[in-house]
Simulated scan of single mutants.
Amino acid sequence: MQLFKDIFYLFFPDVCLSCNQQLSKNENTICTICRHDFPLANFTNQIDNPIEKKFYGRVPIESASALFIFHKKGKVQQLIHQLKYKNQQEIGTLIGNWLGEELKSSNRFKNIDYIIPVPLHPKKKKLRGYNQLTKFGVTLAKVLNSEYIDNKLIKTYSSETQTKKGIVARWNNVNEQFKIKNEDYFNNKHILLIDDVITTGATLESCANQLLKSKNIKISLALMAFTE
């Protein structure tokens, strides 16, 4: 069996999903060079970090963090593109483990009850075939000993991509797009709301406002990447 695997690897080697170079046998998903070359945000233990400041006066956030800093045409963009559009869902698991261990070791992300992803509209999920946040969220839940729930916060209608919109247009586009099914379900709970890349924060704000309809709820944020 091992001989067969070695022969298969010889003709069909795994490649790094960031730089496309061949992986060695002890590497997984991304190569060691890329892993050390990614721009890390280092926000997890930083009070009043740039993500938290972004939501001042908008919605109350307990704590927020991201694993990477996002730069256009950079390694992080390439990695997340592979996750979102090329069905390379092992990237979500990789980032979930990486960020999860950071959050687990921090006093700022204790007692997380539920992990909630920013939802996709059912039509978009059917077209893509998956939510790029699922593996990320499931992995975070395992590391943080919490529960992943993806059927309580829903997206009520589809919309155009947010990528090229300004802050006002983004807010108008996402406001009232989301709905919480059972407002009492999250009463007295600490929610970790997750997304891939944060820019203006309009989508997360809209989701948080829905979750805040529950009583005595706390909301923290965990993102794959933060756009400066």
Rank of each mutant, 00 (worst) to 15 (best):
residue 2 Q to C: 13
residue 3 L to F: 13
residue 4 F to R: 13
residue 6 D to V: 12
residue 8 F to C: 13
residue 9 Y to K: 15
residue 10 L to G: 03
residue 11 F to L: 13
residue 12 F to R: 09
residue 14 D to Y: 10
residue 15 V to E: 13
residue 16 C to Q: 08
residue 16 C to G: 12
residue 17 L to E: 12
residue 23 L to W: 12
residue 25 K to G: 05
residue 28 N to K: 13
residue 31 C to H: 09
residue 31 C to Y: 04
residue 32 T to E: 13
residue 34 C to L: 08
residue 36 H to V: 11
residue 36 H to G: 08
residue 37 D to K: 15
residue 40 L to P: 04
residue 40 L to Q: 02
residue 41 A to W: 07
residue 47 I to P: 06
residue 47 I to V: 14
residue 50 P to M: 07
residue 50 P to C: 09
residue 51 I to G: 00
residue 52 E to Q: 13
residue 53 K to T: 07
residue 54 K to G: 02
residue 55 F to G: 03
residue 55 F to N: 00
residue 56 Y to N: 08
residue 58 R to N: 05
residue 59 V to R: 03
residue 60 P to L: 12
residue 61 I to W: 01
residue 62 E to N: 15
residue 63 S to D: 03
residue 63 S to V: 01
residue 64 A to I: 11
residue 65 S to F: 00
residue 66 A to W: 08
residue 67 L to R: 07
residue 67 L to N: 11
residue 68 F to S: 02
residue 69 I to A: 02
residue 69 I to P: 07
residue 69 I to S: 04
residue 70 F to I: 10
residue 74 G to W: 06
residue 76 V to A: 03
residue 76 V to I: 09
residue 80 I to M: 04
residue 80 I to W: 08
residue 81 H to L: 06
residue 81 H to T: 05
residue 84 K to F: 11
residue 93 T to F: 06
residue 93 T to P: 08
residue 94 L to E: 03
residue 95 I to A: 00
residue 96 G to Y: 11
residue 99 L to W: 01
residue 99 L to G: 08
residue 99 L to E: 04
residue 100 G to E: 04
residue 104 K to E: 10
residue 106 S to P: 01
residue 108 R to T: 03
residue 110 K to I: 13
residue 113 D to Q: 06
residue 113 D to A: 05
residue 117 P to Q: 01
residue 118 V to C: 04
residue 119 P to W: 06
residue 119 P to L: 06
residue 121 H to C: 00
residue 121 H to G: 11
residue 122 P to Q: 04
residue 123 K to M: 02
residue 125 K to A: 11
residue 126 K to A: 14
residue 126 K to W: 09
residue 126 K to I: 03
residue 127 L to R: 14
residue 128 R to A: 05
residue 129 G to M: 11
residue 129 G to Q: 10
residue 129 G to R: 03
residue 130 Y to W: 08
residue 134 T to E: 15
residue 136 F to W: 00
residue 136 F to K: 01
residue 138 V to I: 15
residue 138 V to A: 12
residue 139 T to A: 02
residue 140 L to C: 01
residue 141 A to I: 05
residue 142 K to Y: 10
residue 145 N to L: 12
residue 151 N to T: 14
residue 151 N to H: 15
residue 152 K to D: 11
residue 153 L to Q: 06
residue 155 K to Y: 00
residue 156 T to W: 04
residue 160 E to Q: 15
residue 161 T to A: 14
residue 161 T to I: 02
residue 163 T to P: 08
residue 163 T to V: 14
residue 164 K to E: 03
residue 164 K to V: 08
residue 167 I to W: 12
residue 168 V to P: 01
residue 169 A to T: 09
residue 170 R to V: 02
residue 170 R to F: 00
residue 171 W to H: 14
residue 172 N to D: 14
residue 175 N to F: 12
residue 177 Q to I: 14
residue 178 F to G: 07
residue 179 K to L: 12
residue 180 I to M: 09
residue 180 I to P: 10
residue 181 K to I: 15
residue 184 D to N: 15
residue 184 D to V: 13
residue 185 Y to C: 07
residue 185 Y to P: 03
residue 185 Y to G: 03
residue 187 N to P: 05
residue 192 L to N: 09
residue 192 L to A: 06
residue 193 L to S: 07
residue 194 I to A: 04
residue 197 V to I: 15
residue 197 V to A: 00
residue 198 I to F: 09
residue 198 I to Y: 01
residue 201 G to C: 05
residue 203 T to V: 10
residue 205 E to T: 08
residue 207 C to H: 00
residue 208 A to N: 05
residue 212 L to T: 02
residue 213 K to P: 08
residue 220 S to G: 05
residue 222 A to Q: 02
residue 222 A to E: 08
residue 223 L to F: 02
residue 224 M to K: 01
residue 224 M to R: 06
